[in-house]
């Protein structure tokens, strides 16, 4: 029986949430297509993780090796190519993460497998598996059709499938026997570099006043800082603002920055790319200010103001001052 293969992802001994999200979606797809769900777990010292993962799939294929200790797309690709050849899955799921982005395209290309990246939904229609993805910074969605092939591959956007619905299957652990025939000296992991710690920890703030590329220039930051101060909060930002060094990197909210959950998040001039939303969508109250009524940020915001932030910020500053009688 053909199966659905899910590549679990972990780092420094910790299972990543995306693995469980994929298993949850994998369970659903397996049911819909009458297939079995098989997890793959590669690493070193991963036995306890294997025990956790086996609860949610029919089979878990485990391989431990020093070459797999830290993620490196090259040995991973060789083991997975072998497994795909051997087991002939009909679908392979991987995270659209730093891990999956490095691994999925070469693996798919070498094995001749059609690949759709960064998918937020997967539907089954008859025999076809149909991925959905976003384009144009989240302003359009696309239904993607695969060329017919014995196997398809999809990388999954983090946060798209809730892991809560996972059912207990209690599958069997199987060891993979695969022999590496090289040492991969041409691509070698050296070390992890932890994120820099700054003077302000935005994850601890109740109020975050965040600015995006729409701020236009670092000269416009003082008025935003003033508003944040009046509200007892701090200033955060989207990636382009940190890239330009207008604010330090540790103020960046999103997948490659911080995940925050303040009481209040005000977004000025932030379009609402998925990578940003992932870091702030769970704030209790979100107010978005953007000139563009179609900006995706308005889909997660509770309140929106469609206007020029250059006008809105000063008027809010004045109003808060007035309220505070200062």
């Amino acid at each position: 029986m053909a199966e659905i293969l899910v590549l679990t992802e972990h780092r420094q001994g910790e299972m990543q949430e995306i693995s469980l999200e994929m298993l949850a979606k994998g369970q659903q797809l397996a049911e819909q297509t009458k297939k079995e769900l098989t997890a793959v777990l590669l690493g070193k010292g991963v036995a306890s993780m294997a025990d956790e993962v086996k609860r949610y799939c029919h089979h878990i294929l485990v391989m431990e090796d020093d070459l797999l200790a830290n993620f490196n797309s090259e040995p991973y690709q060789d083991v997975l190519s072998f497994l795909i050849k051997e087991r002939k899955p009909s679908l392979v799921l991987m995270g659209h993460t730093a891990f999956g982005m490095d691994l999925a395209p070469p693996l798919a290309t070498a094995a001749g497998i059609p690949l759709a990246t960064d998918c937020y939904e997967i539907e089954v229609k008859g025999d076809a598996v149909i991925p959905y993805r976003q384009m144009y910074g989240g302003k359009m969605c696309a239904e993607v059709h695969f060329k017919e092939a014995p196997c398809h591959m999809i990388t999954v956007r983090a946060g798209s499938f809730p892991a809560e619905g996972l059912k207990e299957i209690n599958g069997a652990v199987e060891q993979v026997s695969f022999q590496f025939d090289k040492d991969y000296a041409y691509k070698k992991f050296l070390q992890y570099v932890e994120a820099a710690v700054g003077d302000v920890d935005i994850t601890q703030a109740d109020v975050l006043v965040a600015v995006g590329r729409g701020i236009g220039d670092s000269e416009n930051l003082p008025m935003v800082e003033e508003l944040a101060k009046l509200l007892g909060g701090v200033v955060a930002c989207s990636r382009p603002v940190a890239d330009k060094h207008w604010l330090p990197k540790e103020r960046q909210v999103g997948t490659s920055g911080k995940t925050v959950k303040p009481k209040l998040y005000i977004a000025f001039g932030i379009s609402g790319a998925f990578q940003h939303l992932a870091g702030m969508k769970n704030a209790a109250t979100i107010i978005a200010v953007n000139k563009d009524p179609k900006a995706p940020i308005f889909s997660v915001a509770h309140y929106g103001i469609v206007d020029d932030l250059m006008k809105v910020v000063p008027s809010l500053v004045a109003k808060v001052r007035e309220r505070k009688g200062a």
Partner: peptide, 30 residues
Amino acid sequence: FTTVERIFPPPVGEGAQILEGSSDEVATKV
């Protein structure tokens, strides 16, 4: 290996409640 079958604007869920009016009215609502 893949083709885009159709594109469509993201479905609007609940969406934000848009605060409208003069600058001062909007600021008061905020």
